[in-house]
Simulated scan of single mutants.
Amino acid sequence: MSYIFGIVSAALILVVVIELLRRRHLRERHAIWWIIAGVLALVAGIFPVTLGWAAGLLGIEVPTNLVFFVSISILFLVGLQHSSELTQLESKTRTLAERVAILELRLRDAEQASSDKN
């Protein structure tokens, strides 16, 4: 029963991510980690032996620990990607705010020069 739950959950993750992509509520660069996680979960759900094989290959005694490690790693990468993009957006926002301030100053100076002529 737990295998069926795992397969259904992984398939549901993939369907939701693809639907969000289709509706343009999620960008491709953000969806890649969720698609990777969904595919890995689907493969592990359909072929549970691969989880034990991969854990053995990496020297991990309990396959569930591999699941937790991969899950935490994917969440770490998602957080890192979002932090990087947030830093870039903050820099762009600061630059735009400075440009707007300069334009407002120029506009105010131009309006003042215009009113002084009249």
Rank of each mutant, 00 (worst) to 15 (best):
R29K: 09
R29G: 09
R29V: 00
H30D: 13
H30V: 00
A31E: 05
A31Q: 06
A31D: 03
A31F: 04
I32G: 02
I32M: 03
I32C: 04
W33K: 04
W34D: 02
W34I: 13
I35Q: 07
I36M: 11
I36T: 15
A37I: 00
G38K: 00
V39E: 02
V39L: 08
L40M: 13
L40Q: 09
A41G: 08
A41C: 07
L42R: 03
V43G: 05
V43W: 08
V43Y: 05
A44R: 00
A44F: 12
A44K: 04
I46H: 01
I46G: 01
I46V: 10
F47V: 14
F47A: 14
F47D: 14
P48C: 12
P48Y: 05
V49K: 15
V49P: 11
V49S: 15
V49H: 10
T50H: 05
T50V: 15
T50D: 00
L51D: 12
L51P: 00
G52Y: 12
W53P: 13
W53H: 15
W53N: 10
A54G: 03
A55W: 08
G56R: 07
G56V: 13
G56D: 07
L57V: 14
L57R: 08
L58F: 11
I60W: 09
I60T: 06
I60L: 05
E61L: 06
E61A: 08
E61G: 15
E61W: 03
E61P: 05
V62Q: 13
V62H: 08
V62D: 08
P63K: 09
P63W: 05
P63R: 05
T64R: 11
T64H: 10
T64K: 12
N65L: 13
L66V: 01
L66W: 00
L66I: 09
L66Q: 05
